[in-house]
């Protein structure tokens, strides 16, 4: 690009860059700075405490619990929706009656406001009047009826079920789009060669979805590490601290415990983890663009 062309490009990019710097870079740099301070989140002054907020994290039992919960959450709410989404996409890409309606049904949860999702599942899980326990009691499985959100042993799993219900539509939609791009003659040739349905899926469909896998998995992983709203609305991190994740614990420290310095340090850690897990996705995208 010529020098003149470069200048023009900068002029065109300037509005977007300005928005990017104002709304992303500056807040991010500010947060990084405050993570090295003891700011309470309300006072006009604070002290620099170096790495103290970071070094004290391992001795905070809730941080440890939140990190473990985040890990469990990431594995379960990535693997299950991705597998289910792929299965639904493959099924709905074939000859199925009422295909448009089914696509709509499976994708609808993804567009619902999270607070509504939390309310819906909160009612379903209500120990005394919820549909889940009512169903279990109706079929004679009274012993399986639980206070799902009211005990440590089931609360996290219960919120993950809601998250799976919510998320399965997103990978389904991406996989459906990717499936449309696979040439049909590949399948026809394989069928002529005597390949079974499984062989066709494994040797044609799966490799052809490689780019979609990157997008779906990377975005799902990033999303899972940012989890906050569903937990906050369904359990408020409880009972006790049983469903605390890094996002909610960051929020509690910054906004409720007057420990903004410590809370932003947790936010920085969450960001770093999200960056690390998104590296393969970014690399794959840049690789595609350069080839």
């Amino acid at each position: 690009m010529s020098r003149r062309g470069g200048a023009v490009a900068w002029v065109f990019a300037a509005p977007a860059l300005l928005v990017y710097v104002v709304f992303l870079v500056y807040p991010a740099v500010s947060s990084l700075w405050f993570s090295f301070t003891d700011w309470d989140g309300l006072s006009p002054t604070y002290h620099v405490v170096g790495l103290q907020n970071y070094t004290s994290m391992p001795s905070d039992p809730v941080v440890v619990q939140a990190a473990v919960n985040n890990l469990i959450w990431a594995v379960v709410t990535v693997v299950v929706p991705v597998v289910l989404g792929l299965a639904l996409a493959v099924a709905l890409n074939g000859k199925v009656r009422g295909k448009p309606l089914l696509r709509l049904v499976f994708y609808t949860p993804a567009v619902l406001p999270l607070v509504s999702v939390a309310s819906i599942w909160g009612w379903l899980y209500n120990p005394q009047y919820g549909a889940i326990n009512a169903f279990l009691r109706a079929v004679g499985l009274d012993s399986l009826a639980q206070p799902w959100l009211g005990q440590d042993s089931t609360a996290l799993a219960a919120t993950m079920v809601a998250a799976i219900w919510l998320r399965v539509g997103f990978p389904m939609l991406l996989y459906l789009a990717a499936l449309q791009g696979i040439p049909q003659d590949l399948y026809e040739a394989a069928t002529v060669d005597g390949a079974t349905r499984w062989q066709r899926f494994w040797h044609i469909t799966m490799p052809s979805l490689k780019a979609a896998h990157y997008v779906v998995i990377a975005l799902s992983v990033i999303d899972s590490f940012k989890v906050f709203d569903l937990i906050y609305a369904m359990t408020y991190g409880g009972p006790g601290t049983a469903t605390q994740v890094m996002g909610t614990w960051m929020y509690f420290n910054v906004f409720q415990y007057n420990q903004a310095g410590y809370g932003t340090a947790i936010a920085v850690v969450i960001t770093l983890v999200a960056i690390v897990v998104s590296v393969p996705y970014v690399r794959s995208q840049t690789k595609e663009q350069t080839t």
Binding site: V22, W33, T37, P44, T45
Partner: peptide, 24 residues
Amino acid sequence: MINRRKFLGLTGGAAIAAGLSACT
């Protein structure tokens, strides 16, 4: 002790800082 004004002074020009302070 550092106050927020000093920090803003360190991080950029006054005009930009005025706009940025709102977003954080």
